[in-house]
Computed example of a mutant assay.
Amino acid sequence: MSTSSPKMKQWRPPYSLIKYSQVNANGDTPLHVAAKCRHSAMVKILFQHSKARRGTSQSGGLNSVWEMLKMANNEKNAALHEAVQYGSLEVVKVLTRRGDPDFSYSTNSYGETPLYLAAARESPEMVVAILGSCRAAAHGGPVGKTALHAAVMSRNSETMKEILEKKKCLPEETDQYGWTPLHYAAYYDLPDNAQVLLEIDESAAFIPDKDFNMTPLHVASSQGRLKVIEKILLHSPQCYELVDARGWNFLHFAMVSLYEKEVDLLLQNPLVRSLIHQKDAMGNTPLHVLAASKRNNSFERNSINLKHKSNLQVINKQNISVEHISSYGFPELEVIAGIFT
């Protein structure tokens, strides 16, 4: 007589007990919960039982797995949103492989798509999983930003490259402030990211923002980002003479935000040198701005001005010269220049 214990079969709930469309107080289906718990095995079981219960689809004939994936909770998150937010690459892979390749996954209550969330998490692997299986993956984010904005702001060049591989139109897309991804690369001093963006689309350097008409070159100059300035001038040199809402070219900003040796370096470029003579809406040249900024107490001995001494007598619309400002000041312009010091 055998004394061995009988083998126990793995218990699985009968199909009648699995109600994949039932939700909790948060509007979460069992698939949402499995995604939040990073439980890829449970996700697969839910898919298996859903397929086995053919004919139960609420929309009558729609692929039951696809229907599960499209269901949103109270925050308008699909299961894929939750999987990305909770950082489960394995669950993301399972969900995207089994989902409708033409479903775009709209934004949640916070304006985030799964692709945007993956980019913000600095996860190129999740980005690849989503873009590889979801042909129509939406890329939107809050306040008009895109997944490419998120990738730039997260400082992850690998994520950027993966997004640009499938969505080459994004470098020119702006958020509600009119900022492109290149504006953010300029602001956060990301020359390598700026180069990647410019190699895909040089025209992004010409796009001004909505409030101040500032291009990425203006932003880079206002923040003192010399390496980003050099990248933009290398790839899109024609944008050098564009001006903002006040008529400032990028050299007006550079005179305030960069050190003397950095400005000297820029002035070796003949295009940049020609901007020394350009006046803003009030008639101020970059040297007027430099004098008003008071960055260098020895203004008269400043090497920049010695090279352009003839410009020290140039006057603005108020008949005030650069030399006058260096000697007696110009409060009106000093306030403006002080914003960028």
Rank of each mutant, 00 (worst) to 15 (best):
S4N: 13
K19A: 10
S21C: 04
V23M: 12
N26W: 11
T29W: 09
A34E: 04
C37K: 15
S40T: 11
A41F: 12
V43Y: 09
F47E: 13
K51Q: 15
T56S: 09
S57M: 01
G60C: 05
K70D: 13
A78Q: 15
V91T: 15
V94N: 07
L95R: 02
E112L: 04
E112V: 06
T113L: 01
E125P: 04
M126G: 01
A129Q: 02
C134T: 05
R135K: 15
A136R: 14
V143C: 08
H149C: 06
A151F: 07
S154F: 02
R155P: 03
R155K: 15
E158H: 03
L164R: 02
E172N: 11
T174I: 12
Q176V: 11
Y184E: 15
A186P: 04
Y187R: 10
D189T: 06
L190E: 14
N193G: 15
V196S: 07
L198P: 11
S203D: 15
S203W: 10
D209V: 03
T215V: 03
H218I: 08
S221V: 00
Q223A: 04
L226N: 00
I229Y: 05
K231C: 09
K231A: 14
C239I: 00
Y240K: 08
E241T: 10
A245V: 13
S257I: 00
L265P: 02
L267F: 06
N269I: 00
H277Y: 14
D280K: 10
G283F: 03
L290D: 00
R295T: 10
N297M: 07
S298W: 08
F299W: 15
F299I: 15
F299T: 09
S303N: 11
H308K: 01
N311G: 08
L312M: 12
N316R: 03
Q318G: 09
H324M: 11
H324L: 07
F330K: 08
F330I: 02
P331Q: 06
G338R: 10
T341M: 12
